[in-house]
Structures are given as C-alpha cells and as structure tokens.
Simulated assay, not measured.
Amino acid sequence: MTRWALVIGASSGMGRATALKLAADGYDILGVHLDRRAALPRIEALRAEIEGMGRRTVLFNSNISASTNRKAVLDHIRETVAATEGISVLVHSVAFGVTKPLLGPGSATEEDLTITCGVMGHDLVHWVRGLLERNLFESPGRIFAMTSEGDRRAWPSYGPVAAAKCVLEAHTRQLAVELAARKITVNCILAGVTDTPALRVIPGHDELAAAALRRNPHGRLTTPEDVANVVSLLCDSRAAWITGSVVSCDGGESVAG
C-alpha cells in the first residue's frame, strides 16, 4: 500500500532532512516550499534524491501565507493522490516569520505579529482541516510540528516567533484530543539549536549557536538529521500512544544549563 507524507517546508533544514528520511522509510513525498528561482537547482536535487530511492515526489513552490494558495495546493494534492491512497504523515516545518524586538525602534508591527503567528502557528490547523475536508488523511496517521526552546526562553528579536511557537504547541494539544478518535497522533518536536537557514536570519544567531554548543553535553549542535530520525521513530506503530506532547530532540541541551 502506498504511503504519502506531506512536508510543509520541504526545501531546506529540518523539512528537507525529514522528507529524505521518510522517503528512505518508504513514503512517497508531497513537499511544499517557497523558493526563488536561484534556489530551484536545490529543489531539483531534492526531487532527484527522493526519486533515486524509488519513491514518487510532487513538489509545490507556493507562498502558503495566502489562504488561496494553500487551498490550491490542497486541491492539487487531491488530484495527485489516488482515491485508494491517502496521506499518513503531515510534517509542518515552516520558518516564515518576523524576527524583530517587540519594543522600540524597528520593533514588530501589528501586521508582523499577525503574520508570524498565522503562518508559524495557526497554519497547522488550516492544513489539518484542509486534508480532512478532502478526505485525504489516513487513519492511523501522524502529525508533527517544529517548535523551539524559544517558546519558553527570551531571545533577542525572537518575540514574534516565540509567540507563534506557543500558539503551535497549544494547537498541538487541542488537535491531539480532537483527532484521537481517528487514531491520528499530533506532536511537536523541540529541536536544540540547529544550524539551518531559519537560524541564520535571527539577529545574533552566531552567539546563540555558540552558547548552545557550550551547553550541549554532547559537544555539538543538533542537526536536521537528528530531528528527521525522531520523526521517523514516532511514525512507528509502537509510538501510537505518544500524542499531544512536546518531544525534545536536543541531546540534553535544554537541561544542561
């Protein structure tokens, strides 16, 4: 039986690593990304690597901050996925937000806060609703969203994203309860500081990474592949009782100091 995984944010970082790991695990991959023309060779490389594993892949380059675009992608997915197939895994790995202070010159505007919480927080609910409305989600199923230690720590200019992560975790708990009858689990993965394009747009990211490296008892930063491996583990049928949780994937970084 064909198993599809839908990865939102598939072109880089944790999303890319997770798409590749799930393909290696035997899933066909639906990927959504937002990239300019210069990045398209990287996307084609991702496609080639997945197809080289003998898996199907369909990639959508779309700005999903617009609800009309998200709905168009969902409709295209319904046309792509055969009537006898469905999506078993949804991975929401979106880094599309504003990193600005909350107060003072250059601070986040009302629109900045709304967009960041919308795309990195509420967007998870919109994708889940869209899949269910189109009868695309399999039972049992798995849903994962990517959070960070910034949900509970204050980092310079991270306020808008921190708020979005809190929204995301709240939705994870609620969705876990509402989807239990369908045997669909919902969990957040809390990665340690990871060197990704999303990290590099945070002001002071070099200092953030250096501090994490000093704290981490393993003496290294978390990698996207570490996160992908945790997602892979939680897709196992033996993990069906883990839901509504924030699962740390940081090598002990968050408890070391």
Rank of each mutant, 00 (worst) to 15 (best):
G252I: 00
D123T: 07
G52V: 01
G104L: 11
F60V: 12
I43T: 15
S139I: 00
G106P: 07
N63P: 12
E110L: 12
L20F: 03
A256V: 01
A17F: 00
R200W: 00
T196K: 00
S245A: 15
D206S: 09
A212F: 03
P203M: 13
G86A: 07
V161L: 06
A228R: 01
G31H: 00
Y158G: 04
A164P: 03
E149T: 07
A164R: 00
V161S: 15
A19L: 03
S139V: 01
G52T: 05
V125S: 07
R47K: 15
G86K: 07
Y158C: 02
V186Y: 08
S148P: 11
L175E: 05
G204T: 04
M120F: 02
V119I: 11
A108N: 14
W155D: 04
L208S: 11
K183C: 05
E225N: 05
D25H: 12
G26V: 09
R70Q: 14
G86M: 06
R152D: 08
P41K: 04
E178D: 14
L22S: 09
D236M: 04
R134V: 11
R173Y: 00
P160D: 03
E253T: 05
R78V: 10
L90R: 08
V128N: 09
A82I: 05
V32A: 07
G192H: 01
V98M: 03
I115V: 12
V186K: 11
I43C: 10
R200N: 05
L132E: 13
H171P: 01
H205G: 05
R134I: 10
P217G: 12
G141Q: 11
R42K: 15
A39G: 13
H218Y: 10
E253F: 01
L168C: 13
A17P: 03
S254V: 00
A39D: 04
I8E: 09
Q174I: 13
R215Y: 01
P156R: 15
A39T: 02
G244E: 06
L132R: 10
G159C: 10
A240E: 12
I8W: 01
T223Q: 07
L22Y: 09
D123L: 09
